[in-house]
């Protein structure tokens, strides 16, 4: 009987405290009945008792069958859970880029690698915290047996469903949030003179030339328009004709502006001290000019891609 007691104790350990006594009492009664039936054929050896207990199943498995574990997120809430997670992580990424950019631009010797590491490090910390909070919120509903999205599932109408669309027509959250982060970063760089202190501004060894700075500031309304467009994409989540046309226009403006900027030398100018002898400002200017031309390829690609998609959409 010692084996039976050990088995019951092992099952008990896996059970919630309020159910331990009752379930173990019942389980023991059932096991004893089974052993009694076997004992009618002769005295039971320890190996026979062990075989009966083995047949019952592992103590943890038996405990799970008596009290099935409740899922952290209810099945019907999984899609809402994923949606919430993507949205929150996206917003945190954008905020992290803003914070990182502020620190990087404000530092006198900020390296690009340091800037990227700051974003990654900060984002991982924030993401872990956000993930925990979201999981706990959904879990609190799950343990109460409530479903957050239960109300939505009853009031739907077939007529409200979106039209059948190819997979490319669905806008990905990751794309929208990376676009938003880029636009906000650009705005912060262009308008750094507004939010940075005079000491921070004076500490920078290389700055945009006056001409380029002015061009960038004139371009700011297009960047603001891009931000609004990203919010519109988040709201619609599907590429429509209007959205494609707007996106095409914005990307075309970016491509033309970047090419125009690339041929507007000088792009940079030295402020105060020299560049520690590593590079000359002319070299940096040349590299930046090439980088701008390469960068212009991305909006150009998106512009052509959206044109093809738009033609496909109006043809269907």
């Amino acid at each position: 009987m010692e084996l039976v007691d050990r088995y019951i104790a092992a099952v008990q350990r896996e059970l919630p405290e309020d159910k331990r006594q009752e379930i173990s009492r019942e389980l023991k009664a059932n096991i004893c009945d089974q052993l009694d039936a076997l004992a009618e054929q002769g005295e039971l050896s320890e190996s026979q008792i062990a075989a009966v207990l083995k047949q019952m199943g592992h103590p943890a498995q038996v405990a799970w069958q008596f009290v099935p574990p409740s899922p952290i997120v209810a099945n019907e809430d999984i899609s809402l859970f994923k949606y919430t997670l993507y949205m929150v992580l996206g917003v945190l990424f954008v905020l992290q880029v803003i914070g990182g950019a502020t620190q990087w631009l404000g530092a006198s010797e900020g390296s690009l690698l340091g800037f990227l590491l700051h974003i990654v490090h900060g984002f991982i910390g924030d993401a872990c915290f956000a993930f925990t909070v979201i999981v706990l919120s959904f879990w609190s509903f799950s343990i109460q047996g409530k479903s957050i999205s239960a109300g939505c599932s009853k009031d739907w109408q077939p007529q409200q469903l979106p039209k059948v669309a190819p997979s490319w027509q669905h806008i990905r959250f990751s794309d929208v949030f990376s676009d938003l982060a880029t636009y906000l970063f650009l705005l912060m760089v262009i308008w750094s003179s507004v939010w940075m202190s005079a000491e921070q501004l004076a500490a920078r060894s290389v700055i945009f030339s006056v001409n380029v700075q002015q061009l960038l500031q004139w371009f700011s309304p297009i960047i603001l328009l891009s931000i609004l467009n990203s919010f519109w994409q988040l709201r619609r989540q599907v590429w429509t004709e209007t959205l494609l046309l707007t996106n095409m226009g914005i990307n075309l403006a970016y491509a033309l502006f970047l090419v125009f900027l690339a041929f507007n030398s000088p792009l940079l100018q030295v402020q105060g001290s020299d560049l520690n002898g590593l590079f000359t400002v002319q070299q940096l200017d040349k590299w930046l000019s090439h980088a701008l031309l390469v960068t212009a390829l991305f909006p150009s690609y998106e512009c052509i891609r959206d044109l093809l998609r738009w033609r496909k959409l109006i043809a269907s």
């Binding site: 009664a29 009945d33 089974q34 039936a37 047949q55 019952m56 069958q65």
Partner: peptide, 20 residues
């Protein structure tokens, strides 16, 4: 009771393990 129920099921042709 648990064991007698299992016996009855077995006698009726439904074999089920105790854990279930």
């Amino acid at each position: 009771y648990g064991y007698s129920l299992r016996k009855q099921l077995q006698d009726g042709g439904i074999d089920i393990d105790e854990g279930t």
